[in-house]
């Protein structure tokens, strides 16, 4: 019963956030300096009288504001994210084409950074005060302070231009015509640099967080109980500290999903990765506002879904949640 309530509440919340972003988009269109129709058309379409007139009719721009909002909301929720005049295709088409590439990149960066961050954080906490601890924590401090896009450029400079180890641009070798496993290997090779550069910033965060969390849990009373039971140190860390320490890291990682998407915009821009981040950058360059707003809405929705899933998973992993909920 309680789980049902929880599921229902979380779903409602998720839907409300998405609707909120749609309303935010609507407000932005109207608050922007200039004619809302021009925003809806994008810079390239604003010169086309016929297109503008069509947009006015479609969004009822001469109707009262709340009616316009309703029209807009209805349109977006039925999957109509507007029309890109520049590309002459619906925005939803553009985004759907690009979404898989972004999901691949962010998912691999997420797994990479979380796995590496936890391993490094646990190791640093276990050997607190050692040289290894200092090295790991200094590295984390530096990467936490480095702009993502710059790390990406430096990676290209070193690993592609100077060492020529890895391909610097795009998702696969253009015109190579690989299929099956050969294609997968080709994509994987292209994936390495973007994943690592996007992941390093987050690795730094998770390393610091894991270490702090481990040290905090190590000071709790039940760890003393375990020692009083005669449990060896290694087992105490594995069986008692680790699980209690890692739960907050997972929560935080879920909250960070939005940041990861933001980072993808920068990474995809540098590596010409054909995802929605790159699409956003191109739209920026062309002042193609319908695409910009569409990408914004879709990224927010992806984050909402990720948060929803992790919340549900968390509920399974931590037995205490049900009682508190």
């Amino acid at each position: 019963m309680k789980t049902l309530d929880f599921l229902f509440q979380r779903l409602v919340k998720a839907v409300l956030v998405v609707i909120g972003v749609v309303i935010l988009n609507f407000l932005l269109i109207h608050l922007a300096p200039g004619d809302p129709a021009a925003v809806l058309a994008g810079e390239a379409g604003a010169g086309d009288e016929k297109f503008i007139a069509q947009l006015r009719a479609q969004f009822g721009l001469d109707q009262p504001l709340h009616w316009q909002l309703w029209t807009y909301l209805k349109g977006v929720l039925s999957g109509d994210l507007g029309f890109s005049y520049r590309n002459q295709v619906p925005v939803s088409r553009l985004i759907l084409d690009r979404l898989p590439a972004t999901l691949l990149l962010t998912a691999s960066a997420f797994v990479f950074s979380l796995a590496l961050g936890i391993v490094l954080g646990v190791a640093a906490a276990y050997r607190r005060g050692s040289v290894a601890d200092s090295v790991v924590m200094t590295g984390a401090l530096v990467f936490y302070a480095t702009p993502l896009f710059w790390v990406a450029l430096m990676a290209v400079l070193v690993f592609s231009i100077h060492l020529d180890w890895l391909p610097p641009f795009d998702m696969e070798t253009i015109g190579a015509g690989y299929t099956g496993w050969a294609r997968a290997a080709d994509i994987a090779e292209h994936l390495v640099l973007p994943t690592v550069t996007l992941g390093m910033f987050f690795t730094a965060i998770y390393t610091r967080l894991t270490r702090a969390s481990m040290l905090e849990v190590m000071g709790l009373d039940f760890v003393k109980t375990a020692r009083a039971k005669g449990v060896p140190k290694g087992r105490i860390v594995r069986r008692h500290v680790l699980r209690n320490a890692i739960l907050p890291v997972f929560t935080f990682a879920s909250v960070q999903a939005g940041q990861l998407v933001g980072g993808a915009v920068l990474t995809e821009t540098v590596f010409a990765w054909p995802g929605i981040g790159r699409l956003m950058f191109d739209a920026l360059m062309q002042r193609d506002y319908p695409v910009l707003l569409g990408v914004f809405l879709v990224t927010a929705t992806v984050v909402v879904i990720v948060n929803l899933v992790t919340d549900l998973l968390y509920r399974i992993v931590d037995p205490r949640i049900e009682a508190a909920g």
């Binding site: 009373d221 109980t225 020692r227 009083a228 005669g230 008692h240 699980r243």
Partner: peptide, 19 residues
């Protein structure tokens, strides 16, 4: 510890592993 000498603490909630 645990075999010949055992210990009981003041706060039973925090003395047990919550997970």
């Amino acid at each position: 510890r645990g075999r010949s000498i055992a210990m009981v603490f003041q706060e039973p909630l925090s003395a047990l592993n919550p997970l």
